[in-house]
C-alpha cells in the first residue's frame, strides 16, 4: 500500500467530515430539537403576555394590585389579586413550617448519622414519595387529614370541610423528599477534611453536623428550600381539592382559602366563557404565578451552582 499524499488525505477527511450532506442534515435536525424548548418558553411568555393584556384593558393595574377582594363571578365584580396571593402564602407558610424541620433533620440523619446500608434503603423509599401523583395527596388531604384527623381532633365546628391546613400537611409530605434529598446531596458533598478536623478538635457528632457540615452545605440547603417553595406555589390539585374555592383574607388555617392555582383550575373546569373578563383573568393570574415560580427557580439555580463550584 502506498502512503497517501497528505494533501489528498486532508481532502478526503474533509469530505468525510463535512462533505456528506447527511451529517449536516442531522446537525440541522438536532438543532431544531434544541430549539423546541426555547420556543416553548417564548410561547408561554407570549401567551401569558398577550392574553393578560386583554385582561388589563378591562381591569386596571391599580385595581388588580390594590383592590383587596377577588370576586370575578358575582356582581359587583372585583379583581384584587391579593386574596389569591394570600391564600397561596398561607398554604406555603404552613407547608414549609412542617416540611423544612423534618426534611432537614432527615437530611442530617442520612448524611451524618446513618450507616451507608441504612441510607441505601431509606433514601429510595423517601424519594418514592416524590413520585406519588399529587391528585393522590389531594385525596388524602380531603379524606384522611380533614375527615379523620383534623375534624375529630379540633372539632367539626372549628374546622371547615375545605381548609388550608389539610392542604398544607399534604403539600409538606409532597416537598419532604425534595428538601431532604437535595440537602442530603449538599451535605454529602462537604469535604471529609472539614469533618475530620472538627472531630480532631474534640467535637461531637451533633456539633460536627450542626456547626460544620450544615453551614458548609448552606447554599445547597437554601436551593432545596427555594425549589420546594416553587413547587408548593405551583401545585394545583392538592389546594384545589382540599383548600376549597373561597378567596378570602384570613390567618386561620382551619378556614378554606383559594390560591392562585386553585382559581386557575376553577376557570379550567369551565365556569367562565371564553373572552369574558373572568376567563381572561386566568392569564393574568397565570402570569403572576409564572413570575413568582420563575423567581424562586432562578434563585435556586444560582444557589445550586454556587455549592457545586465550592466543593466539586
Amino acid at each position: 500500500m502506498t502512503v497517501a499524499d497528505p494533501g489528498n488525505m486532508n481532502e478526503a477527511l474533509k469530505k468525510r467530515q463535512f462533505g456528506k450532506p447527511r451529517e449536516s442534515v442531522i446537525l440541522f435536525v438536532l438543532t431544531l430539537c434544541a430549539a423546541v424548548s426555547l420556543v416553548t418558553t417564548l410561547l408561554i411568555v407570549g401567551v401569558l403576555v398577550r392574553e393578560s393584556a386583554t385582561f388589563f384593558e378591562e381591569v386596571s393595574f391599580r385595581d388588580f394590585f390594590l383592590e383587596t377582594e377577588w370576586q370575578p363571578l358575582f356582581e359587583p365584580v372585583s379583581f384584587g389579586i391579593w386574596e389569591l396571593v394570600a391564600g397561596t402564602l398561607m398554604v406555603t407558610f404552613w407547608a414549609l413550617l412542617l416540611a423544612v424541620p423534618i426534611g432537614l433533620a432527615t437530611a442530617v440523619y442520612l448524611s451524618e448519622y446513618a450507616h451507608p446500608n441504612t441510607r441505601k434503603v431509606l433514601k429510595p423509599i423517601l424519594e418514592a414519595l416524590a413520585g406519588v401523583p399529587t391528585v393522590v395527596y389531594a385525596y388524602f388531604a380531603l379524606t384522611f387529614v380533614t375527615q379523620d384527623l383534623l375534624r375529630p381532633t379540633f372539632g367539626a365546628d372549628q374546622v371547615n370541610v375545605f381548609n388550608a391546613l389539610s392542604a398544607s400537611i399534604m403539600l409538606a409530605v409532597m416537598i419532604l423528599p425534595t428538601i431532604a434529598s437535595i440537602s442530603e446531596d449538599a451535605m454529602a458533598n462537604v469535604p471529609r477534611d472539614l469533618r475530620e478536623a472538627a472531630y480532631g478538635l474534640g467535637a461531637t457528632r451533633l456539633e460536627v453536623a450542626i456547626r460544620v457540615v450544615f453551614p458548609a452545605a448552606l447554599s445547597g440547603i437554601i436551593a432545596a428550600i427555594l425549589l420546594a417553595i416553587a413547587r408548593v406555589v405551583g401545585e394545583t390539585m392538592i389546594v384545589a381539592i382540599a383548600a376549597g374555592s373561597t378567596p378570602q383574607l384570613t390567618v386561620n388555617p382551619f378556614e378554606g382559602v383559594q390560591t392562585m392555582t386553585g382559581f386557575m383550575l376553577q376557570v379550567g373546569l369551565g365556569d367562565a366563557a371564553r373572552g369574558t373578563v373572568d376567563y381572561q383573568a386566568l392569564f393574568a393570574v397565570g402570569m403572576m404565578l409564572f413570575l413568582i415560580t420563575l423567581a424562586f427557580n432562578v434563585a435556586a439555580y444560582f444557589f445550586v451552582r454556587r455549592y457545586r463550584e465550592e466543593y466539586e
Binding site: G234, T236, L289, F290, T293, L294, N297
Partner: peptide, 11 residues
Amino acid sequence: LANLAGVPSII
C-alpha cells in the same frame, strides 16, 4: 431547560 422543568404544570 432548568427553568422549564420548574414551570408549574397548570401553566
